[in-house]
Amino acid sequence: MRGGLEAAAKGELGASDELGARLKAYEGRSASVAGKGKDLVNEPMIRHWCEAMGDTDPAYTGPDAIAPPTMLQAWTMGGLSGHTGRAGAHDELFDLLDEAGCTSVVATDCEQEYLRPLRLGDEVGFDTVIESVSDRKTTKLGTGYFVTTRTDVRVGQDLVGTHRFRILKYAPARQKQEPKGTRARRPRPVVNRDNAGFWEGVERHQLLIQRCTDCGTFRHPWLPGCNACGGLDWDTVEASGEGTVYSYVVMHHPPFPAFDPPYAVGLIELAEGVRIVSNVVGVPYDKVRIGLPVRLEFRRYDDEPQEGDEGGPLVLPVFRVLEDQVGEVG
């Protein structure tokens, strides 16, 4: 059985897709039953979440605090020790995919619905079902199946929210061998309806920052709503381009053909108060330091067209160490 399925994963997952039909039979089956959150809704976890997200909404503090809605999944997580009550259907489904050569997995998206806030002391329960398995799909990563699970979150008998999580379980595509002398191209950003305006600005050599029109709070990366007041209306301002290195890492591994490690990736705090991740240029990687002043510039990559190109050259914001600082760090 295993040998036949592995052959299928190499391109012979036949026209009838018998594997797909077997996977479809798992739709509607339970992945977990009567799960219980490991902790009651509590103030310390809410505080840590808000600090990590930079969310200062007063509704999340004090004796009458509610939990941020986006924490919904956090209350259902099992941690390293997992949960009891996990149903076998989930493991069976993944075993089938593994046997078919779909051994790699990537999270693709999630959706959440909120029916009422979670409050301090609430005990969270949940049930998870395998909601859908897609037809066989071929992507740039490889060929496989999108699996969507739905978790219904309850307090007592009351449904308080729903979390849908979608993954792609796939057989990795064989890497295309580039002709000798051809430089690998940089990965393209994922552009969606929430961040399209940011990348359009980058194309024009503008670094645009969202600004809430209700409370005036700047935010980055781009989000559909304000994490300070919850307002949904916003406009943009163009960043001055001045900033400092707030933190950084030096990348050595994993190697990627389009990059030449080691190189420095910085978390840059802009003069406007928001932070952005980008490359630090103008000094050797081992001379980058926290607090180093930098200035925005735009770099163009992959100018030479290659077969199969999509979208042409790539423009990215990077941050150059100011000239008067180069000697000091040299």
Rank of each mutant, 00 (worst) to 15 (best):
G4C: 06
E12T: 11
Y26P: 00
A31M: 11
M45S: 11
I46L: 05
H48W: 12
G54R: 07
D57Y: 03
T61F: 08
I66C: 04
G82D: 05
T84R: 15
R86H: 06
G88V: 15
A89T: 05
L96E: 11
V105M: 14
T108I: 13
Y114E: 01
G121T: 12
T128A: 01
S134Y: 11
K137Q: 14
L141K: 10
F146W: 05
V147G: 02
T151A: 10
V153Q: 05
V155G: 01
Q157P: 01
I167W: 13
I167M: 09
Y170R: 03
R174N: 05
A184G: 14
A184S: 14
R185S: 11
R188Q: 04
V190S: 13
A196D: 07
H205Y: 12
R211H: 11
C212L: 07
G216C: 06
L223W: 01
L223F: 02
P254G: 01
P255E: 12
D260Q: 13
A264I: 00
A271W: 04
E272D: 02
V274Y: 06
I276R: 03
V288C: 04
G291V: 06
P293K: 03
Y301D: 02
E310Y: 04
E310Q: 13
P317C: 05
E323Q: 09
D324E: 15
D324G: 00
Q325D: 10
